[in-house]
């Protein structure tokens, strides 16, 4: 299953981006990559199993991705309004 390997690679790239970058927009993009990794898996398994459930799942994952991106960017805008002169890059949120 080559597709699974692609999916895993995609997942790891997304995770790496999320865990190391400071720019919030890019972090949100990393989440899109992770969800795409899930979708590759789902579609590949869908063909493997010969049913469309995986593809349906993938549609829902896309819907979720849209919703998360919309809300995430909405919060980003609200944050930007509150600290107008500051660069978003400086919001060093992911400190743990």
């Amino acid at each position: 299953m080559h597709y699974v390997a692609v999916s895993l690679a995609m997942l790891l790239i997304g995770t790496a981006g999320l865990l190391t970058r400071r720019n919030i927009v890019i972090i949100l993009m990393s989440i899109e990559l992770i969800l795409n990794a899930v979708n590759i898996n789902l579609v590949a398994f869908s063909r493997h199993h010969g049913n469309a459930a995986g593809q349906v799942f993938a549609i829902f994952v896309i819907a979720v991705a849209v919703a998360e991106a919309a809300v995430g960017l909405g919060i980003l805008l609200a944050l930007f309004r509150n600290r107008e002169t500051v660069q978003v890059d400086e919001v060093d949120l992911l400190k743990w």
Partner: peptide, 15 residues
């Protein structure tokens, strides 16, 4: 500005 946050090696290691 800095593009990666300070603890990026930790994130990379986890990955």
């Amino acid at each position: 500005l800095r593009q990666f946050h300070q603890r990026w090696p930790l994130g990379a290691a986890v990955t």
